[in-house]
Design a protein around this nucleic acid. Structure first.
Lengths: 207, 207
DNA sequence: TGTTTTTTAGTACATTTGTACTATATTAAC
DNA sequence: GTTAATATAGTACAAATGTACTAAAAAACA
């Protein structure tokens, strides 16, 4: 990709993350990138194009890490959720303005919608494997794992928002807090054997 | 309260819920309320005052339903979470624009922050009672119920957002979906006895 | 009734913002 | 080396928005 274009995306991302989409004007982006607004517009005809480009960057990054190692199922499962959020953290402006963005941009909205459905199917598949391998227990309620997926999805998407409505800044610590939240939400679904394994992975969580 | 003031708040709420705060101008509110912008401004000196007024209405409404009936602990516990979300639904613009609002309005931000802390303390107290009464099990991990609270908090605050990033409209159904999500997330923490009780409350969830 | 206060309407303004348009400058192609 | 393309800068503009200000109408009050 063109160097200027790259620079625009990086600076936009920084500004968006710091101040939120609606508080970042094209002039501010151009300033930060050290170019003119005219030039900015040459590379991205519409403001929305910048956001779209960043969105698809994000999606690509996440896609690239989505696979479970078959040797250490539980660990791998827990790792992925943290890796995803670590990437989301890089693009957190997107999550903070999720509603605004999807309201304005049907393309992103539809794409995310499809993505989410595919992710759920994948999730359920992985859970099936985990059940067969004695890591997760069987469902005790109907659609229990569907429900679990939904909760994890909401928390992944809005954890940073949840922090920022109370705190003034978002720090990397929030990723660890997220990690704790998610792993603890998984715990009740583990078999006794896997619970032991969990305790060795997170000895500090023992009562 | 003044009739005009009342009308402004109602119409603002409707518009905010339908289109999101940033897409509702003072002119639009005045139009909808059948008054002039000048008059609107007489009652609410600043745009932010409308939002603040609505916020404190919301907080008051929720406060008014927050008490657990001691005779039917589990049912009462589950009911409250739905009642809260039902009220939140009435004011869902607030949740959809949570970040934007708290970013702009320190007063609301600080107030919510305090509120959230108080709510967590209340939650833990209630959980203690539920444990003592054999409804919830003891903690198996450190801060397990703190973690549960956080998850419920995020989901309560952002469930509607989560729906709206995929769907085009928000319907009352989303409240039932929320209810299912939350009750299923509670299930693993119930004692065997309480699980039986759960099954009689939600027979349709049996596998 | 006359006066003061409250309520309502209308206008005007400063600011911001996205973007369209034009004119150079730089680079690539032949 | 001339031409064509790409890239950059600068200006201009229309639209929207919050809000300040003024004046009239209505209500309350004495």
């Amino acid at each position: 990709m063109n160097a200027t274009k790259q620079k625009i995306l990086i600076k936009s991302l920084n500004l968006f993350n710091d101040s939120g989409i609606s508080n970042v004007s094209l002039r501010a982006i151009a300033d930060k990138a050290g170019i003119s607004v005219g030039n900015l517009q040459y590379h991205f005809k519409k403001r929305e194009d910048i956001i779209e480009a960043l969105y698809f960057q994000l999606v690509e990054k996440i896609d690239s890490i989505l696979f479970i190692k078959t040797d250490d199922l539980l660990q791998s499962f827990l790792n992925i959720s943290v890796e995803i959020v670590t990437i989301l953290y890089e693009y957190h402006f997107f999550l903070l303005d999720f509603i605004t963005i999807t309201r304005r941009n049907q393309k992103i909205k539809r794409h995310y919608s499809e993505l989410s459905k595919r992710r759920e199917i994948e999730f359920i598949k992985v859970v099936d494997v985990l059940i067969k391998n004695g890591v997760f227990r069987e469902e005790l309620l109907k659609n229990e794992y569907h429900s679990l997926f939904k909760r994890i999805e909401v928390i992944s998407n809005f954890w940073f928002s949840s922090i920022l409505i109370q705190a003034d800044v978002l720090s990397r610590e929030s990723i660890e807090q997220y990690s704790l939240l998610i792993s603890q939400s998984i715990y009740p679904y583990l078999t006794d054997e896997a619970k032991n394994q969990y305790d060795t992975i997170f000895p500090s969580q023992l009562v």
